[in-house]
Amino acid sequence: MEIIMSRLVLKDNIRTSAACKSRLDAGVFVRVVEKHPWLFYMSKRGHSLKLVDPLKWKSYTLELPEIAKSSTVCFSRDGWLLMHRSITKDFFFFNPFSRELISMPKFELPYNEIAFSYPPKSDNCVVVALNFNVQHQVTISTCYPGATGWISSVSPANYQQFYMKTKIVYHNDRFYCFNVGIESLFSFHPSSRTWKSYPLANVDPTLTQDWYKKEFFFGRDERRALSHMSPSEFDGLTFFVSFYNSELRTNLPWLRNNVCFSRFGYNRRHVSYSFDQSRYNPSMEWNNELELCPPQSLWIDPPNNVLDYF
């Protein structure tokens, strides 16, 4: 009933809710569901942006401004894209809906992972980039909109054994990284540039719930992560995972206990893994991260009036 009611517009939801108590309960519950993210794909030549509503299977196209053409998308958060121009070696924020663009200083150092904390118009916005070298040293660089340059430093020796595919995720004023080799979480506080280590055996329960159970946030092999989790661990959560970013939703009745990847199957539906059913949908074999999360595709939060931009 929740699934049916969730697909009705508000006007029809209210009308249907008047039929009986069970419909009323379901209707009221889904009226406060979260918005699901949309998928977007860059065209091969980087001239346009294709956005897909994964639940309605509808796609839309946006033409990119000249400055954003042939750029690489690195990260997405709250409707903003962090993009990179390899030729000029600079980053910039771009909002594909409002067409706003915010420049960042040039960044000469190669990067392996990058993320930002808040939308670029926020006073608390900071960008963090990680670079791993062959000696397992980690250089961490930070910057913020309006800065004149990046600040870079090599991490302390006891924090250098990062797994090369680690992801960085922002949570409560700190950026977190996961180390597969020694099963630890590392955190970095950008303002003080201080580090902390969290052995998983001693991790705070709230951190355990938000991080360790959801290992694929940190770039670990998805198949291994999924096989170690159960529906009860997921607590009804829904993850939207891509090559560049991940989105979490706590109240999507029709997708509880699911991981939705940025790959579309042959039936035009996105590929997902259901913990309740313990299988992929559509039911076929997916072998690696690139198949499940192809590059140049990621999840983005559309504005409430998203259709006004097409």
Results as ranks from 00 to 15, higher is better:
Asn112Thr: 13
Pro303Asp: 04
Ser153Leu: 10
Tyr111Leu: 15
Phe178Met: 07
Asp78Ala: 13
Arg174Ile: 07
Ala26Arg: 08
Gly146Ile: 08
Ile3Cys: 12
Ile140Gln: 03
Asp308Leu: 09
Ser103Ile: 02
Leu101Asp: 03
Leu101Ala: 14
Ser6Val: 04
Trp254Asn: 12
Lys11Glu: 15
Ala19Gly: 00
Asp308His: 13
Leu207Glu: 02
Ile140Pro: 03
Thr142Gln: 09
Glu66Thr: 14
Arg15Asn: 14
Val169Lys: 03
Val180Thr: 08
His84Met: 09
Val306Met: 11
Val28Ala: 12
Phe175Val: 08
Ser297Asp: 00
His189Leu: 13
Ile14Glu: 12
Ser227Trp: 03
Lys196Arg: 13
Asn172Gln: 13
Cys260Glu: 02
Asn251Ile: 05
Met164Tyr: 08
Trp38Asp: 00
Tyr212Glu: 08
Met229Asn: 09
Pro199Met: 07
Tyr244Gln: 13
Val138Gln: 03
Val128Cys: 14
Ile14Tyr: 04
Ser242Ala: 14
Cys260Asp: 01
Glu2Ser: 06
Leu252Arg: 09
Asp204Pro: 01
Leu82Gln: 10
Thr148Val: 09
Leu64Ala: 14
Asn257Cys: 11
Leu255Thr: 01
Lys58Arg: 09
Lys35Tyr: 02
Asn158Glu: 14
Phe75Asn: 01
Lys213Val: 01
Arg45Gly: 14
Cys20Thr: 05
Arg193Ala: 14
Glu215Ser: 07
Asn158Pro: 01
Cys177His: 00
Asn202Thr: 13
Asn133Gln: 04
Ser262Trp: 00
Phe92Tyr: 15
Phe264Met: 12
Asn267Ser: 12
Cys74Ile: 12
Val52Lys: 08
Arg256Met: 06
Glu113Cys: 07
Val73Asp: 05
Gly146Glu: 10
Ser17His: 05
Gly79Gln: 03
Ala157Leu: 10
Leu226His: 07
Asn112Cys: 12
Leu81Trp: 07
Phe75Ile: 02
Ala225Lys: 00
Phe91Asn: 06
Arg268Tyr: 04
Asp78Phe: 06
Trp57Ser: 11
Cys143Leu: 07
Ala225Asn: 00
Ser76Met: 01
Ser22Val: 09
Tyr176Pro: 06
Phe92Cys: 12
Phe188Asp: 05
Trp195Ala: 04
Ser17Tyr: 05
